[in-house]
Amino acid sequence: MEAFKALIVDRTQDGGHRCEVGLLDKERLPQGELLVRVAYSSLNYKDALAAAPNGGIVKAYPFVPGIDLAGTVVSSEDDRFREGDEIVATGYELGVSHFGGYGEYARIPADWAVPLPSGLTLKEAMIYGTAGFTAALSVQALRDNGVYPEGGPVLVTGATGGVGSVAVAILAKLGYEVTASTGKPEAKEELLQLGAHSVIDRNELTPASARSLDKQRWAGVVDCVGGKSLATVLAGVKYGGTVAASGLTGGTDLPTTVLPFILRGVRLIGIDSVFVPMPARRKTWELLATKYRPDKLRELSSEIPLDDIPAAMAVMLAGRSKGRIVVKL
């Protein structure tokens, strides 16, 4: 394995940009205690930005993107892992400032690795990936704040995306009445099959004139959109309800008031999956392998080879991708 295949993002001598599969020498891998033979990765919006000419993610070139990976330890300089151990890694600096999962091999710090939970295959771990991990954190935030199925409907915004689709499936598995919001009407049947009780158009969440307080509709919300949509959602959350927010596809501004918080006791919980402490990280992966595992986990994804990543990234940046995309190395 002196040289192996990887998706390499680089600047050209004339100041241009390239993103293509090529060969990478093992010596070019960054420092880390674990050398991993990567079996699967996945495609996320951050990966597409990392490979784009002006995505604002990568600071030094050449670079290998991929914020997720699942594979087998080839060699270890850390007593916690041995050759042959199967591991999952997401978040931290992986695929951002540290070469990521879009290569047949990766070298990572041992502190970033989670032993593959019993009950999950390497592929299934990447069907989840960062998106599924974020969805699980969001669902757990609702439950930690008292949002249970008997409390009434829960809303998932951006429901056809990676986080949204997994959240719909997890919530349905746990017995919640799920309303899925999407801008893709053609995806209605797929969302119903994932377990959504009903599907609404995202335009319902961006009315021309928003109200500070609206009819109480949702016991809880997994919000993957942000912006004006999140402001509308907050106005419609039931007394004591919780919103778990992890997305910004609808913008970073939040044009709301304090009224939902001080008159209805609504909680807005921010969800970050990048630097989750290892005890909570391992607990969440165990939940994904057991209690949170959807009945139709494999139906959440499609699979592509390494060579197809650039085309899939273009579709994602255009807002046309659906569900989870697994990359087979």
Rank of each mutant, 00 (worst) to 15 (best):
T252A: 14
E150K: 13
G32T: 04
V21W: 01
N203V: 08
Y45Q: 05
A208F: 10
Y128M: 02
V147I: 14
V114L: 00
D111N: 12
K188Q: 07
V258N: 03
Y102D: 13
Y40A: 01
T179R: 05
I67Q: 09
R298A: 09
G132W: 06
E104G: 12
R324V: 01
A159M: 04
D10N: 10
K283D: 14
V178M: 03
G56R: 10
F99H: 10
A125T: 09
G84T: 05
E27G: 06
I200M: 06
Y105M: 15
L35W: 11
N203H: 12
D144Y: 00
D307G: 10
E27Q: 14
W218F: 06
A312W: 05
A51F: 05
D214S: 15
I8S: 07
S76N: 07
V221N: 10
G84N: 04
T121C: 04
A208S: 09
Y128R: 04
M1F: 11
G220R: 11
A70R: 07
L137S: 11
V64C: 13
T257R: 01
G152F: 08
A244T: 01
A231G: 08
Q31S: 15
E286V: 03
A52Y: 13
G270E: 07
A52I: 10
E93G: 13
R202N: 10
W218C: 00
P277Y: 12
G240Q: 10
A219K: 10
V74C: 11
R18D: 06
L192I: 13
A180D: 11
V88Y: 07
